Computed example of a mutant assay.
Amino acid sequence: MPRVAIETSSRFPMQIPAAEKARLMRAAALERTSLKDFVLRNALQAAEAVIEKAERLSLDEEQTRFVLNLLDNPPKPNAKLQAAARSLAARK
């Protein structure tokens, strides 16, 4: 999982080309909001979408049935799993 950047300041300096800033300003004006509010609102929506996609697992029907079957009927532990369990128990 990626590390989260921790900053002590709430400032977010950013330089963008004039044409892109003008386009953002036009969009903000069309929504009757400030440039800051427009950019922040849309950036947060995009951030939520990225986080949701990264953290949520989607399975189709076949995959769901496979996982549920494994939960109901787990396979017998193999030698590696048994060795790992013994190793973990020995550490405690």
Rank of each mutant, 00 (worst) to 15 (best):
M1V: 03
P2M: 07
P2W: 05
A5K: 14
A5W: 15
E7M: 03
E7T: 08
T8W: 15
S9A: 05
R11W: 07
P13V: 00
A19F: 04
E20A: 08
E20P: 01
K21N: 05
R23Q: 11
A27V: 00
A28I: 00
A28V: 01
A29H: 10
A29D: 14
L30A: 13
L30C: 09
E31P: 01
T33D: 01
L35R: 00
L35V: 00
K36S: 15
D37E: 10
V39H: 01
L40H: 04
A43M: 03
L44V: 12
L44C: 09
E48N: 14
A49G: 08
A49E: 15
A49V: 07
I51D: 14
I51T: 11
E52T: 13
E52C: 11
E55Y: 10
E55V: 06
R56L: 09
L57Y: 13
S58D: 11
Q63E: 07
T64C: 11
V67H: 05
L70M: 13
L70R: 09
L70C: 10
D72E: 15
P74A: 14
P74K: 03
P75C: 01
P75E: 04
K76N: 11
K76D: 09
P77F: 02
P77W: 02
P77E: 12
P77Q: 03
N78H: 10
N78G: 14
K80I: 07
L81F: 14
L81Y: 06
A83N: 10
A83V: 07
A83F: 06
A84I: 09
S87V: 02
A89P: 00
A89L: 11
A90G: 12
R91T: 10
K92E: 15
